[in-house]
Design a protein around this nucleic acid. Structure first.
Lengths: 228, 228
DNA sequence: GTGGTGAGTGTACGGCGTACACCTATACCT
DNA sequence: AGGTATAGGTGTACGCCGTACACTCACCAC
């Protein structure tokens, strides 16, 4: 009896959507999104799986909510500078948020409908271009062209190397050299730049900013043509 | 007995990897990748689910195989023009292949390791830049910058509208107008360009080529700077 | 007290990928 | 021709998954 009493006494923190989402995000940060199931999450919260469904319609809604948490971490737009700096810094802030939650870009790719939070982010992004003097049409094209870069990632096409700094067996390298000569050539050049011959080979942050600036410069030029 | 005899007689086409993959691709084309399970596919092939595993290690390997089928549909590189035309046309061919198999880009995004077929495609793509006079480093950056565009798609961030030409309820439009003024402004401009006010609103092919050319022009300029 | 309400529970269902043991028809060797 | 190895198809079973549905029970206003 004493035990039951104590259990009931220690007013167990009640569930609510926000606490569920925070826990889910933390779990995904720790274990990856693919190991996040409703059942595991319920366990994490010391609750029976179905309890979650009093606060969320289904798993999809939860994933959306988790992404909203991430998007919520993106800094608001600066208003004290030109459009290009403002857009650039905002996107880099988005990227920082996504890097904090490595599962997020993949989950984002899997979503089909934007949430209101994402819509609001897009809305403000569009606003930045318009305020910067872009025509509506060019803004539209720019938004398309930026694509997922707007959210802070370029999908890297197999970015997730199994072992971040796997030393790459020499025989594997040889096989690659024979079969994919151009990849090998590129690999040689890139890994040579780096401190170690076997390092990660390229600086993702640099590559991201490189192509971000390629886009920004490109659309800036188009804007100037338009206004000439 | 006659029946059994007949059944055994009509030499049932034997399973093999290629036939499985062809059937899987056709099924995904028809029903979408999310409804493709090993069990449904086995059913499609009039075979017990586990039969598939004599030809494929697991579902992942099957998905990879399906993507290889799609990548196999991309035209080989032209060798009779400048790098820019050759790259551009190859990418547009990739895009055509992906549009034939709407599930493919999403599945591709979900993969973590490239298959040899994809590696070969990348290799030849790299080769096109190098042959075009790009330095290795610039080639490397270009490959990163092009990202999924190399495979014929830019991830559209919620490109899949539930109903391709849903008329958009007026009250929904009003709600959007109030909450997301910039999105609304863009929506107005874009849908006005179009024949109908409620049409798809934008031409994906145009947007794809727009940003493809933005990238190609950008890296071309960098190449010229490099060689100056 | 009474009755309504909303959060948490328990059970159950149908689906999934696939491990493992089994059967069987063919192919090959002597 | 007889024996046997092997590859391809089968059947059963396991442990996951998301979630429908009926329930209990604490709390609340009246």
């Amino acid at each position: 009896m004493a035990k039951t009493d104590l259990e009931t006494r220690q007013a167990r923190v009640p569930l609510n959507k926000e606490r569920i989402l925070r826990t889910a995000v933390a779990f995904a940060d720790r274990e990856g999104a693919e190991s996040l199931s409703m059942r595991r999450l319920a366990q994490e919260l010391d609750v029976v799986p179905m309890a979650l469904y009093k606060h969320l319609a289904n798993k999809e809604e939860m994933l959306d909510g988790m992404l909203d948490v991430v998007v919520g971490e993106i800094d608001p737009a600066r208003t004290d500078t030109d459009w290009k700096t403002a857009v650039r810094e905002r996107i880099l802030s988005a990227r920082r948020a996504l890097l904090r939650h490595p599962w997020a870009s993949r989950v984002m790719e899997s979503r089909t409908q934007p949430t209101p939070v994402v819509m609001a982010y897009m809305d403000s992004m569009i606003g930045m271009f318009i305020a910067g003097g872009f025509s509506i049409d060019l803004t539209h094209h720019a938004m398309h062209a930026m694509g997922s870069r707007l959210m802070g990632f370029s999908q890297e096409l197999f970015n997730d190397q199994s072992d971040p700094d796997a030393p790459m067996q020499p025989e594997m390298i040889e096989a690659i050299a024979a079969t994919y000569p151009s990849i090998y050539e590129l690999y040689l050049a890139v890994s040579h730049d780096d401190a170690s011959v076997v390092g990660p080979g390229c600086d993702d942050q640099f590559e991201f900013e490189f192509s971000l600036d390629l886009m920004l410069d490109g659309i800036e030029r188009l804007k100037d043509v338009e206004n000439r």
